[in-house]
Design a binder for these strands. Structure first.
Length: 607
RNA sequence: CGGGACGUAGCCCAGUGGCUAGGGCGCCAGCUUUGGGAGCUGGAUAUCGAGGGUUCGAGUCCCUCCGUCCCGACCA
């Protein structure tokens, strides 16, 4: 491609709207333009890089036998009603109505679309397992799109779904995708951190997210320096805190004692009032859970709760309340709590509900004698001794509380927020934390959609069965942006060879005379050899050409100048020495250079 | 949706209620220059986000709306 025929509107100055480096460089390098908040146009150069990323993903999907489909982006609302997500997806889903008042959805994800297409054909166990994917536009009506391609409303996702007749088959597929994802990110030149993740309320045991470290990431990663444990904090567990000799870790024989605590409600106020530490308290929070699927029949105090018992799904409770206890210095992790309760959402209960259920104003809840709702305790509470907690009465607290003696929770479950400094659940080392952005996610989905959408097959015994699914996504735009976040310098982008929009740039100091002849000859040789080469044939000063090439980040630059002919200069954008090479052999050498770089990314060796 | 900051030419920004709204970059023409976004001269490009209002007079003050960015809430 000759630069004079390319549409490449580079910007010298940074548009005010861009804050993160990938957004700034994508705009400056003439790769994208914004149409509206969260909606972008890829320009030709940006699209070339985008296609590279897409094709790497496609190759690796094909390599594990995953089959590419191309469903429509706009799908009927009916299939979303079948799965139940018409109601539960909420405002994030863009719904439109056509001229005959048919409800349509601009796909935010495609479990429904694939299941609807496949359910009528996958009728025999002999047809399983099957893995399918698409690389397609998605729309999610994000509340606040930001950071350029990192979080937009319309975006491209590779989403794959696998269908199985048994757990072992699902697990094999899950493992294959996990390996494919590692290859994909490696070939894109990305350093990803695979972490254990929450698989949501839909159940499923396996879930892994592929994160890149990012200052603007919206995931908190919990990492162990010693054993390699890595988890999203929505999932992270930790070992019990080290025992100390402070009073709260030693059993007491003193009986439960009520003490007056007028107008003392918060942990801070209590520590001051009682002259002790937050670790001595049992903090009790009242949570409201929505669409709770946990079996509550063993909890004696929920008899009056509304229950829904559908024919083809477990019993669930549209609304349920729980008292959740953690040690006073810790926080409840609401994602972990929702997972424990199998609820679609949990939130702190309204003050009125708290007063109704505990019989006391907010600030005086406690597990001792609490009968109005089930008590869920974090293990950190059960390890406490001689603790302090609210006494279910205004201006009153209990001291000398012994868990197990003075109260027994309905359920003990890990719901604490794990932080840097907590001890590793595997090896006991102190965790450290990072912020991350999620590029990919694989998880075992189970039968949620196959069951609700009536997908079934006949097994070896002629018995009707419901298949189980795996679900595997990668954000393509976000992956592209992340590559720039990881590969840039003060002058611009530094593309890995595998995703560079062009592999080689030829810059004649002046496009005329012998320099022009040499540049044209090189250009022809490289293009004939299948190298993607960009020739800067513009009538610009050399400085302008160099600045533009640095900005758009082509990996190999060949400068053709009259003072060096019959040699030409070869320099890598990623750094290193400038080399003078005879024009005669330049094409051959550069060809080898490009292939060596591609090979290095394939094998994972540093280039 | 809450809090904050903004909206002046393609991009970055000036602009005390007072004359015909400025500069830099970019763009066009000419001259000059040619190894890191050159120089000189001339030129084109603005419904000052939109609509109301206050005023003799509004880019500037007030109100409403729209849009953009940041923080938060939310997010396979």
């Amino acid at each position: 491609m000759k630069m004079s025929r390319m549409y490449l509107p580079t910007l010298r100055e940074v548009p005010a709207e861009a804050v993160i480096v990938s957004h700034r460089l994508l705009l400056r390098a003439g790769m994208i333009r914004k149409l509206s908040n969260g909606l972008f146009t890829y320009l030709p150069l940006g699209l070339r890089a985008f296609r590279k990323v897409e094709n790497i993903i496609r190759e690796e999907m094909n390599a594990i036998g995953c089959l590419e489909f191309k469903p429509s982006v706009v799908v009927p609302g009916d299939i979303w009603r079948e799965s139940g997500r018409w109601e539960t997806m909420g405002e994030g889903m863009l719904r439109v109505t056509n001229r005959v008042a048919q409800e349509l959805v601009v796909s935010p994800t495609a479990e429904e679309a694939f299941t609807a297409v496949l359910r009528s054909e996958l009728a025999s166990y002999k047809q399983y397992p099957l893995a399918v994917y698409q690389i397609n536009s998605k729309y999610r009506d994000e509340i606040r799109p930001r950071y350029g391609l990192m979080r937009s409303r319309e975006f491209t996702m590779k989403d794959a779904y696998s269908y199985h007749t048994n757990e072992a088959s699902l697990d094999a597929s899950y493992q294959a995708f996990g390996q494919a994802y590692r290859r994909i990110f490696r070939r894109n030149g990305l350093s990803v951190i695979p972490v254990r993740a929450d698989s949501g309320a839909m159940g499923g045991s396996g879930s892994e997210e592929f994160m890149v470290e990012s200052a603007v990431g919206d995931n908190n990663l919990i990492l162990c320096p010693d054993c390699g444990y890595a988890a999203n904090d929505e999932k992270a567990a930790c070992a019990p805190d080290l025992q100390t000799n402070n009073p709260t870790t030693l059993p007491t024989s003193q009986p439960l004692t009520a003490i007056a605590t007028p107008e003392v409600r918060t942990i801070d106020q209590l520590t001051a009032f009682l002259n002790t530490v937050p670790q001595a308290f049992i903090k009790t929070l009242i949570y409201r859970a929505v669409n709770c699927e946990l079996d509550l029949s063993a909890a004696s105090n929920v008899g009056s709760l509304k229950r829904v018992t559908p024919a083809n799904a477990p019993t669930w409770y549209p609304e349920a309340f729980f008292a959740v206890c953690v040690r006073g210095d810790l926080d409840v992790n609401e994602v972990k709590l929702a997972a424990v309760l199998k609820a679609s959402e949990v939130a702190l209960a309204a003050d009125l509900d708290v007063e109704r259920l505990t019989g006391a104003p907010v600030g005086f809840a406690g597990p001792v004698g609490l009968t109005g709702l089930p008590v869920l305790a974090d293990p950190s509470v059960m390890a406490l001794h001689d603790a302090v907690t609210g006494a279910l009465q205004a201006d009153l607290h209990f001291t000398h509380v012994e868990p197990g003696r003075d109260f027994s929770p309905w359920l003990v479950a890990d719901v604490r927020t794990v932080k840097a400094g907590d001890r590793c659940v595997n090896c006991g080392a102190a965790y450290y934390g990072k912020k991350g952005n999620e590029l990919g996610h694989i998880f075992k989905l189970g039968n949620k959609y196959t069951k609700s959408m009536g997908m079934s097959y006949l097994d070896e015994n002629g018995k009707q069965q419901v298949p189980i699914m795996g679900c595997y996504g990668i954000g393509v735009d976000r992956t592209l942006a992340s590559i720039i976040e990881e590969h840039h310098d003060a002058d611009g982008i530094v593309w890995p060879m595998s995703v560079a929009p062009f592999q080689v740039a030829i810059v004649p100091i002046k496009y005329e005379g012998v320099m022009r002849q040499a540049a044209d000859r090189l250009y022809g040789q490289l293009a004939a050899a299948g190298i993607e080469v960009l020739l800067d044939d513009r009538e610009e000063r050399p400085g302008v050409k160099f600045k533009d090439m640095d900005l758009i980040g082509i990996p190999v630059r060949i400068v053709v100048g009259d003072k060096n002919l019959p040699n030409v200069e070869v320099k890598l954008r990623s750094g290193g020495e400038l080399r003078l090479i005879p024009l005669e052999t330049a094409a051959t050498e550069v060809h080898a250079l490009v292939w060596a770089a591609l090979e290095a990314l394939m094998s994972g060796d540093p280039a």
